[in-house]
Design a protein around this nucleic acid. Structure first.
Length: 101
DNA sequence: GCTTTGACTCTCG
DNA sequence: TCGAGAGCCAAAG
């Protein structure tokens, strides 16, 4: 695996996130040796692996949901369904469910 | 090939 | 706790 665009790498990483766990754009960017936090977010938005890449499991560094194509509410709903508790657009026990690569 | 945009993050008040 | 401003990277036009 190589010769892939920055976005492709992001999608590959997202798919590694276990269910019930969340990560941050910064963590992904750091893993990619880049500071393109924003680029990571765009990769999710442009992600063709919608159901494969856990774009909804990626949140802001503060544990806030951030944004989601289609509605943040939708993202929260998915997270709660996976076992992640969300309170006022913020992840509960974010430090505990935070997935480190 | 340069300019604009975006699902971000950090710092200051 | 919340709001505003500045900085960084990559893809699309």
């Amino acid at each position: 695996m190589r010769e892939k665009s920055f976005d492709a790498k992001v999608w590959q990483l997202l798919r590694k996130i276990p269910r019930g766990r969340v990560t941050t754009y910064g963590a992904i960017a750091h893993k990619l040796r880049s500071k393109g936090y924003r680029a990571v977010g765009m990769a999710c938005h442009r992600n063709p692996y919608a159901p494969i890449a856990a774009c909804h499991r990626v949140v802001n560094s503060d544990g806030s949901i951030g944004g989601f194509g289609g509605g943040v509410k939708r993202k929260i709903r998915l997270l709660e369904k996976e076992g992640v508790k969300v309170r006022k657009n913020r992840i509960v026990d974010f430090d505990k469910i935070f997935y480190k690569f």
